[in-house]
Design a binder for these strands. Sequence first.
DNA 1: ATGGTGGTGATACCA
Length: 275
Amino acid sequence: MTSSVMTKTARIATWNVNSLKARREHVLTYLSEGKADILLLQELKLQDADFPHDAFKEIGFSSVCHGQKTYNGVAIISRFDIENIVRGLPNGEAPAGIDGEADTHARYIQADIKGMTIASLYLPNGNPCPGPKFDYKLRWMKRLAGVAETLLHSERPIILGGDYNVMPQDVDCYDPNAWEGDALWHPDSRAAFFALAHSGYTDALRSIHPTGEKFSFWDYQAGAWQKNNGIRIDHLMMSPEAASRLCAADVDNAERGKERPSDHTPVYCDITLPA
DNA sequence: ATGGTGGTGATACCA
């Protein structure tokens, strides 16, 4: 017998598209096929003025964007109303830019949707490591941890999704030895990721699939996709109030096999919607 | 094997 109480679920996906201009039709098709109700995008590589809000509106989706020319850029696309938009990490500490400059990178956008707080984030890559870019990555992660902890006080369902540029565990990399010394595998990067978990956030995919390979990125080079030389760096981190609503989570490998794909494939979770 | 591919934008830079 199924439950007598009707529950609605929503699918929330995160996808680093490596240029929304290059991946526009891929994203529109993905949404048209009903593969996400809320989609978090990263690496738009376009300015706010060039974001195709109208194209998404035509297929029934609202969208908010924090863009930047050529680099970075994040967005949230949703079937449901999007409220209380925050562009850039809120409540940040000192500016976390490289060489003491202000953090002008468009790497974080947050909004409230259906009683939930949802963020799309694009963590700095951090290579070469060590170096100023790695220092920037760690400062950015520390700022994110502060924001994440503050958000927990709301006791709302919170989902912090995006390209974390961190492989949490050995199983999240086809060959950890090949990534020795890389910023995505560095112990400090992983420690900062696990600090988020220890503060109360659940990795949606590992909650549903505790073991086994579930890659979200395959390099364009050296036939990485064909050889399945992948890594898992795209994550959906959930507050307790969101994790308790989690029904399913997985990766959408099909997108990586298409013509002119992003080097990332979507990661999604299904949650029951708050009443 | 210190390469390889892809996006941006017009050249190196980023990943």
